[in-house]
């Protein structure tokens, strides 16, 4: 077990390093410097600015400087907003994104699993068809379309909830709903199909024969096994929620990390783009790592050190 975790940890670190390196060199391959847009900077000012941000150094020296500061969890200063550092932007925007993301994720997991269970228990019934129709819609409608539709119907036509910004829990409902639709649909479908498979197993019949209540059978015997495939895709879903949050934040004018990311792209603000990408990628890869290990712990059948070639 420990050996497996160690191995996975090393491969995680390599992936993160690849991302940092890729991001760094890609960023510097972009034509145009962050100081191009300010027309009035004369040469001396520009040289000083470039020296300040180490932009005049050799690319590999810059790479070294960047790696060194990353190891101290320092993402460097923002070039456009000169008084703030990327760390400050992250600490300002990330809690909001995190709140939105975790609410959306939690909602999609809980209701997705519930929907999947009910659909499986009433196989081919009204609930089943209803839930699966909902799931197909959830998968087919892109989140930014869903967000606009929700604003149009719930906020503008029915005037039930506020449209934009981030003030109370009421402001959170619509964006979280828009963000959670597609993960919800994926979870519901997956839960349903694996529940259907599990419910035909012999041990379920045994449990029924022993006279266990249907509730106990579903929760204690069926669900445990049916949820394994759901856990495997959790990592991917987290990624979907994180990136989906960029566009949702833009639509709902939420001052989260996504907004900074999109605006930093237009501003060519290298440190912010790099910082955000590296931060999000690391978070994501770390979560994938956790999911992998959780999976190994939950399912005793999985051999943690797989022989290759099998």
């Amino acid at each position: 077990m420990l050996k497996y975790i160690g191995k996975r940890f090393i491969s995680m670190m390599i992936t993160i390093w690849v991302i940092v390196t890729l991001t760094f060199f890609l960023m510097h391959a972009i034509p145009g410097s962050p100081f191009n847009q300010e027309r009035n900077t004369n040469d001396t000012v520009r040289k000083n600015l470039e020296a300040h941000y180490h932009l005049d150094e050799n690319l590999f020296v810059q790479y070294g400087i960047y790696l060194k500061s990353l190891l101290q969890f320092d993402f460097g200063p923002s070039i456009k907003q000169s008084s703030t550092s990327v760390n400050e932007l992250l600490s300002r925007g990330f809690p909001i994104s995190f709140e939105l993301g975790s609410v959306a994720l939690l909602f999609s997991i809980v209701s997705g699993i519930a929907l999947g269970i009910f659909a499986a228990l009433r196989h081919n019934g009204v609930i089943d068809y209803g839930a699966m129709t909902l799931a197909v819609i959830g998968i087919s409608v892109p989140n930014f379309i869903m967000a606009t539709l929700l604003i149009q119907v719930v906020a503008v036509d029915l005037k039930l909830l506020p449209v934009a910004t981030w003030a109370s829990y009421k402001h959170m409902i619509l964006p979280a709903l828009a963000l959670s639709m597609s993960p919800l649909a994926i979870i519901a479908r997956l839960t349903r199909s694996s529940m259907l498979e599990v419910l035909t197993q012999d041990y379920i019949r045994t449990a029924r024969a022993k006279g266990l209540s249907p509730f106990k059978i579903v929760v204690k015997h069926a669900l445990r096994n049916a949820l394994l495939p759901v856990i495997t895709i959790l990592g991917t879903l987290v990624a979907a929620v994180l990136t989906g949050s960029f566009v949702i934040e833009k639509i709902f004018a939420i001052p989260g990390m996504g907004q900074y990311f999109v605006s930093s792209i237009n501003d060519r603000d290298y440190p912010v783009i790099m910082g955000t990408t590296v931060f999000y990628s690391t978070l994501l890869i770390f979560l994938l790592f956790l999911v992998d290990i959780a999976y190994g712990i939950i399912d005793p059948r999985i051999k943690l050190h797989k022989k290759e070639g099998e």
């Binding site: 992936t15 690849v18 991302i19 890729l22 991001t23 890609l26 960023m27 972009i30 990624a239 994180l242 990136t243 792209i265 783009i273 990408t277 999000y280 990628s281 994501l284």
Partner: peptide, 12 residues
């Protein structure tokens, strides 16, 4: 690699 982040990066 989170693909959408990488795609955004490449687009930039």
């Amino acid at each position: 690699l989170p693909y959408l982040l990488m795609v955004i990066l490449l687009m930039v």
